[in-house]
Design a protein around this nucleic acid. Structure first.
Length: 424
RNA sequence: GGAUGGGUGGCCGAGUGGUCUAAGGCGGCGGUCUUGAAAACCGCUGUGGGCGCAAGUCCACCGGGGGUUCGAAUCCCUCCCCAUCCGCCA
C-alpha cells in the first residue's frame, strides 16, 4: 500500500506508474474521495467534541429536568455523529479498495514493459552444460533412479502432489542444510515457521486468503490458511510492531512448506515437479531502514547467486520489467536456472525489495530514540532455495551419459555419496 | 477440548459508570543547585489522525472487534493472547 498523502500529492506520478505496471486504477477518483472523506472526518470530530462537552455537564446538572434536557441533546449529537461516521466509513472503504489496487513505486532502473522487456543482468559462474548424449528431463531421470512417485502423490492427495524417494529425500535435506549454512554465515537468524497463518496475516503480506482469485488453501471453519511462502509468516512476525531503529536491519530466514492452489495455471509447465501444490522452501526476509533496502536487495541476490554457483548450476539473473513486478515489489531480481529438460531457463528464486509498501499494510514501524513519531520499515524477501525447482535444475544439469547424476560437492557431506546411480 | 485467574502507558502498578486531563512509582529527557557528579527539588514524557505557516488545538486509542449508555479502562457479548490445573496426544 502506498502512502495516501503521497498519492494525493502526486496523482500524475502515481497514475503513470500504474500504467507502466499494467494496473488499472483511477487515481483521480481516489483523490476526490479522499477530499470528501477529510471533510466528513472534520464534521465527525466536531460533533464528537460537542457531544463530549455535553456529557461532561450532565453530572453537574442542578435538577432532573435540566439533566434530561442535556441527555436528549447528547443523544441528538451522538446520532448525528453516527450518521456522519457511517458516511465517512463508506468513503474510507472505497478509498482503501482503490489504494490497495495501486502497486508500489518502481525503481528508476527497472526496464519498462511487459515480461519480454525484462533485462538479463548477468550469468552465473557455471557455463551451460554440453551433453554428448540426449539429456533427459527430471521426470525421466527420477523414474530411472526411483527418486519420485508422482502417481503415488496423485493417488493419495491429487495431481500436483508427489512423494520424494530415496536420494531425493537426502537431496531435499541436503539442499536445506547447505543453503541454511550459507545464510547462517551471512548472519541470518534461522527459523522454522508455522505452515499455517491467520487470514489477516496472509492478507497483510499481500495475498488473498479466500475467494475465487485465491492462490491459497484455507482451512474450513477457521481463520487459518496454509502459507504459500514463509514470507507470510516471517513478515507477520513483526506485524503491528515498532522496532527500535538500532535493531535494524533484521535478517531472518525460515524453512516452511509452501502450498499453492495454482488455480488457472493448468496446461503451463505442468510436467513433473516444476509447478506443484506443495514444496519446501528456505526463505530470506529482512526488515531494514529505508536507506538500507537497496543494498539489502543486492545482498539477497548475491546470496542466491552464491548458493546456485555452489551447486554448479548455470543461471541468469533477471531484472524484472514493470509489467511483471506484482504489486508490492519496488524492484525484483529473479534467478532463472538452466533446465536442460526444457531446453530453457526456469525461475528458481526471486528476491524483491518491497520498500515500505508491505510494511505500511502490516504496520511494521521503526522508532529512532529521541525522535518523535515512527516510520515504516522496508521489507525484502528472497528465495534461498525452493527445493522442487532446485531439484529439477540439479538433476538435469548434473546428469551423466550412463544415466547417473553427480552430486555437487557442497551437498556430499549431507547426501553421503557423490553420485546417484541407477538401481542394478 | 474443559476449569480458573489475568491482559492498563517504555516498565511496574492503582483504577466497579461522571470532578477538563488514567493515581502513584520506576526509567528517560530538560532545568535549579554544584568546581564536577550524586542527592534533593521543579517541569516534561506514548501512538495514529484532523485543522493550522506556526505556536497550538481537537478527535481516537486501557489485548482485538461489537454492544448498552448522554457518558465505558470500568457493565454485556465475542474473539485473541498469557498463567495455572485437568483431559488428550507425538
Amino acid at each position: 500500500m502506498l502512502d495516501r498523502k503521497y498519492i494525493v500529492e502526486n496523482p500524475e506520478l502515481v497514475q503513470q506508474n500504474c500504467q507502466r505496471r499494467l494496473a488499472e486504477v483511477d487515481v483521480q477518483q481516489l483523490v476526490e474521495l479522499e477530499r470528501q472523506r477529510r471533510e466528513k472526518l472534520t464534521r465527525v470530530q466536531q460533533l464528537n467534541r460537542r457531544a463530549n462537552d455535553v456529557s461532561k455537564t450532565i453530572g453537574q446538572a442542578v435538577d432532573e429536568r435540566e439533566r434530561e434536557a442535556r441527555k436528549a441533546e447528547g443523544r441528538r449529537l451522538r446520532a448525528e455523529k453516527d450518521a456522519a461516521q457511517f458516511e465517512h466509513d463508506q468513503l474510507e472503504a472505497a478509498i482503501q479498495q482503490l489504494q490497495l489496487a495501486i502497486p508500489n513505486l518502481t525503481h528508476p532502473e527497472v526496464p519498462i514493459g511487459d515480461e519480454q522487456a525484462s533485462r538479463e543482468l548477468r550469468r552465473g559462474a557455471t557455463p551451460l552444460p554440453e551433453f554428448d548424449f540426449a539429456p533427459q528431463d527430471h521426470v525421466a531421470i527420477c523414474e530411472r533412479l526411483d527418486l519420485l512417485d508422482l502417481a503415488g502423490g496423485a493417488r493419495t492427495t491429487g495431481h500436483g502432489f508427489y512423494f520424494l524417494k530415496n536420494e531425493a529425500v537426502l537431496l531435499e535435506l541436503a539442499l536445506q542444510r547447505y543453503a541454511l549454512d550459507v545464510l547462517l554465515e551471512a548472519g541470518f537468524t534461522p527459523t522454522i515457521t508455522p505452515d499455517l497463518a491467520r487470514d489477516a496475516i496472509v492478507a497483510g503480506a499481500g495475498f488473498l486468503p479466500r475467494g475465487p482469485e485465491t492462490q491459497i488453501y484455507s482451512i474450513e471453519n477457521s481463520d487459518l490458511s496454509l502459507v504459500a511462502t514463509a514470507e507470510i509468516t516471517l513478515g507477520g512476525l513483526y506485524a503491528e510492531q515498532t522496532v527500535p531503529a538500532e535493531q535494524l536491519p533484521i535478517k531472518l530466514c525460515g524453512i516452511s512448506h509452501c502450498y499453492r492452489t495454482e488455480a488457472g495455471a493448468h496446461g503451463r509447465a505442468t510436467r513433473g515437479i516444476y509447478r506443484v501444490h506443495q514444496f519446501t522452501k528456505l526463505e530470506m526476509f529482512a526488515f531494514t531502514l529505508p536507506e538500507q533496502s537497496e543494498a539489502m536487495l543486492d545482498h539477497f541476490c548475491e546470496l542466491e547467486c552464491r548458493i546456485f554457483d555452489g551447486l554448479e548450476i548455470p543461471y541468469r539473473v533477471i531484472d524484472t520489467a514493470t509489467g511483471d513486478l506484482g504489486g508490492p515489489a519496488y524492484r525484483k531480481f529473479d534467478l532463472e536456472a538452466w533446465m536442460p529438460g526444457r531446453g530453457d531457463f526456469g525461475e528458481v528464486t526471486s528476491t524483491s525489495n518491497c520498500t515500505d509498501y508491505q510494511a505500511r499494510r502490516m504496520q511494521v514501524r521503526y522508532k529512532i530514540t529521541g525522535q518523535k513519531g515512527t516510520r515504516f520499515v522496508h521489507t525484502l524477501n528472497g528465495t534461498a532455495v525452493a527445493i522442487s525447482r532446485a531439484l529439477i535444475a540439479l538433476l538435469e544439469n548434473h546428469q551423466q551419459a550412463d544415466g547417473s547424476v553427480v552430486i555437487p560437492s557442497v551437498l556430499r557431506p549431507w547426501v553421503g555419496k557423490d553420485r546417484i546411480a541407477a538401481p542394478a
